[in-house]
Simulated assay, not measured.
Amino acid sequence: MKPILIVEDEPSMLMGLKDNLEFEGYQVDVAEDGGIGLDKILGNEYSLVLLDVMLPKISGFDICKQVRKKGISTPIILLTARGEEIDKVLGLEFGADDYITKPFSLRELLARIRAVLRRTENRIESKTDSSVEIGNLSINFSSFEGFVDQQEVKMSHKEVEILNYLWDNKNTIVSRDDLLDHIWGTEYQPTSRTIDNFILKLRHKIEVDPNHAKIILTVHGVGYRLVV
């Protein structure tokens, strides 16, 4: 059984999710505040974490940031009652794999869980254990570690995933839709602007002159090409 951690402070929501996921065959652990949730994520191995954003002690956003900073790549689906675009963008940039707004149906949640687990398993199989050199950056896709001039640089979970996909398809055009489908899946679609923001951040780590890119090229109206 795949172990799932639910971090949720609303008792009825927590117990409802736990009962339904156990009925679906998952092994479920729970935490009722952000502090306990963070400790459990750092101290255990889960296949996936369902993480509420508005939590006592530590917010879901802060948990996500701390977990990714420590190199833990456990898939995270954020649960929140807020649906503004800025919250979605923040969640994705902090390293969440998906985002679902309350109220949601059990059917939708289960579909999201299965999709995230499936994408994660596929990405793990494709990752290389050795570092590769891309412009100024030395990156290990398995450990999510990046270095420029032997100094470690901060890499978000999604930055690494996007760069990994571009590397796997180097010297060919990758459309924005391809990136959206591969990194986030068809169940949840951020805007193309989200992809552009991630590419901009990657260029600042990779390119000699980010304003005149030579490695991650824009193919206008289509997407990007990683040239190596």
Rank of each mutant, 00 (worst) to 15 (best):
E24P: 01
H212T: 04
M13A: 09
Q150H: 09
F61S: 00
K70M: 03
S175Q: 08
Q27N: 11
A213K: 06
L5P: 08
K170S: 13
R123Q: 12
D168I: 00
K102R: 15
G146E: 06
R225H: 05
V53K: 11
D52Q: 03
K88E: 02
D39A: 04
L179P: 03
K127G: 02
L92A: 04
D168P: 01
I72Y: 12
L17W: 05
I195Q: 06
G35A: 10
D181Y: 09
S143P: 01
V53P: 03
Q66W: 05
A31H: 05
F147I: 01
I173H: 13
L38N: 13
T101P: 04
T186Y: 13
K154N: 12
L14S: 09
F94K: 14
L42P: 02
F147A: 07
R193K: 14
P190T: 09
S130Y: 14
H182S: 07
S143I: 01
R123S: 03
S175D: 10
S126T: 11
E108S: 15
N140A: 10
D9V: 03
G95S: 06
D29N: 08
S130P: 02
P56G: 12
L14G: 06
Y165I: 09
G71W: 15
E207A: 10
E32H: 11
G71L: 15
S73T: 14
H157E: 14
V7L: 04
L50V: 07
S130R: 09
F198W: 15
D178C: 07
P3Q: 05
I36Y: 08
L110T: 03
D168R: 15
L42M: 09
A31T: 01
G135T: 03
I72K: 15
R193V: 04
N211M: 04
K214S: 01
D168K: 13
Q189L: 13
F144P: 02
Y188F: 13
E187C: 05
E125K: 13
R107L: 10
V132P: 03
S138V: 00
E85T: 02
K201V: 01
I134E: 15
E159Q: 15
N211G: 01
R193I: 04
A96R: 15
T172S: 11
F61N: 05
V7F: 08
E8Q: 08
D33N: 15
G37N: 12
G43M: 13
G223L: 12
W167F: 11
F104I: 02
N169Q: 14
L38M: 10
K70P: 01
N171W: 11
R193L: 07
I134V: 14
R193S: 08
